[in-house]
């Protein structure tokens, strides 16, 4: 049983790390701001989501698992709001330029 949890953790955390890599490379390589924002949110949501998912079986107690999920929900909420606000700021800048 333990091995099943550990292998699941390794898989999910490495998938999360791959999304962080993809998001970072996207942030550096993409031509304009809005596509960079698109790449960034992938790293945010999926990277962190998969890392948290992978850490759930490692949690020592139900409270810690609940706290992990809370962190992920907060990051989701923050990511969603931030993306909209920054996109509006970018659009406003483009209108002037």
């Amino acid at each position: 049983m333990r091995v099943l949890f550990d292998s699941f953790t390794v898989l999910a955390v490495s998938a999360g790390a791959v999304f962080f890599l993809a998001g970072t490379v996207g942030l550096l390589r993409f031509p304009d701001s809005l596509s960079r924002l698109h790449a960034l949110t992938k790293a945010d949501n999926l990277g962190l989501g998969l890392v948290v998912l992978g850490l759930l079986p490692q949690a020592t107690g139900p409270l810690v698992a609940l706290k992990l999920i809370t962190v992920w929900l907060l990051a989701q909420l923050a990511g969603a709001i931030v993306t909209q606000l920054v996109a509006r700021a970018v659009r406003r800048e483009n209108q002037e330029a």
């Binding site: 790390a17 890599l21 970072t24 550096l28 701001s33 790293a43 990277g47 990511g79 920054v86 800048e93």
Partner: peptide, 28 residues
């Protein structure tokens, strides 16, 4: 990865791009 992403702060043309790197730093 986050340290790599921070390079966007140096190169980022607009303020928004620098903001994105800060956001990535937070999440990372």
């Amino acid at each position: 990865m986050v340290a790599l992403g921070l390079a966007r702060i140096l190169r980022g043309p607009g303020d928004a791009d620098r903001m994105m790197a800060a956001q990535l730093l937070g999440t990372g």
